[in-house]
């Protein structure tokens, strides 16, 4: 059963009561929320996702408005995981964005079975392109452009590296876009499906882009790491790949990992093996079309 099997009204009812058990990659999250924006966002973004059995969930989360006078004057939304409330409430109009941020947080704060990089990751011909980068580097714009050009999305934010096999486990979820990149992607792919825009968040104006159907359909299929590319957007810069020495690529990737130090020798071995398998580059670009064409023409690394 997928989420699209529920009407918006049915989804709202379920979210208000027992919740939905949403499967994203290797994780199942039980989501409960009476907030309409949550139902609307899930219905738009997760229509093709499977619903899990109502028995087990890795994370049990709720998003609801705090009670009291404030809820009338300035409506807010609060997130809870397993009954705890780790964050301050946000304005109610940011409810869906909060859901997405908190789904990321659930993984980065609770999962130690994978080495987790803050990186977008996509796949072509079974080989993964990993794009680690800090906010503002053009990572998500590039990720969205590649996904809408036929690459399979494994994740926009979290690269899960299997500690034993070295493969990349998919965790496809909506791509987070902000500010100018929203219009860039809307122009790049006029048929793409977005959430409504949320203004005045800590990241500016944001919205989410629905993952492509093949990305979701193959969300159980891991990919082999092939390219580790550090993107950097720069106005009017020609698309240029520059090889990065592997030891330096390692250091940069480690600085973008959530749990590298926590995993100790296991994390070192997993990241070092990933570097062995990948061609490593710095990438500068100014125009998305040019960037996508360059990656589409990229040759697979030699074994």
């Amino acid at each position: 059963m997928t989420l699209a099997d529920l009407s918006l009204a049915q989804l709202r009812q379920r979210l208000r009561n027992r919740g939905v058990w949403l499967r994203t990659g290797p994780f199942t999250t039980r989501i409960q929320s009476p907030v309409h924006l949550i139902a609307e966002g899930l219905h738009t973004m997760y229509a093709d996702f499977s619903l899990g059995e109502e028995e087990y969930a890795d994370f049990h989360i709720r998003l609801r408005s705090p009670r009291g006078l404030r809820s009338w004057l300035r409506p807010q939304v609060n997130f809870s995981l397993d009954g705890g409330e780790p964050f301050n409430p946000l304005p109610l109009n940011q409810a869906y964005a909060m859901l997405e941020w908190c789904l990321n947080w659930c993984v980065t704060s609770n999962v130690s079975t994978y080495l987790i990089l803050h990186a977008a990751v996509l796949e072509r011909e079974g080989r993964a392109l990993i794009l680690p980068a800090p906010p503002g580097s053009g990572k998500s714009t590039l990720c969205a452009g590649l996904m809408l050009s036929g690459w399979r999305l494994l994740s926009d934010e979290l690269t899960l590296i299997d500690l034993a096999k070295g493969t990349i486990m998919p965790l496809p979820r909506p791509v987070s876009l902000k500010n100018a990149s929203i219009d860039v992607i809307a122009a790049f792919a006029p048929g793409a499906s977005f959430t409504r825009r949320t203004h005045d968040t800590v990241k500016g104006t944001i919205c989410h882009l629905r993952p492509t159907a093949p990305s979701i359909a193959r969300s159980d299929n891991p990919a082999y790491p092939a390219w580790l590319v550090f993107p950097h957007w720069e106005a009017d810069a020609p698309a240029t790949l520059t090889p990065r020495p592997k030891a330096r690529a390692f250091m940069e990737a480690a600085s973008n990992a959530f749990n590298y130090s926590l995993l100790g020798a296991q994390g070192f071995a997993a990241l070092a093996d990933l570097i062995e398998r990948c061609d490593c580059y710095d990438f500068r670009y100014g125009r998305l079309e040019e960037a996508v064409a360059l990656f589409n023409a990229l040759e697979l690394p030699k074994p």
């Binding site: 020495p245 592997k246 030891a247 390692f250 590298y260 926590l262 100790g264 020798a265 070192f268 570097i275």
Partner: peptide, 18 residues
């Protein structure tokens, strides 16, 4: 330790430093 070309990366599992 792991070596690539003319550089090494060394990680200390005790301190977590690399």
């Amino acid at each position: 330790l792991r070596r690539w070309d003319d550089e090494w990366v060394a990680s200390d599992a005790i301190s977590g430093d690399t």
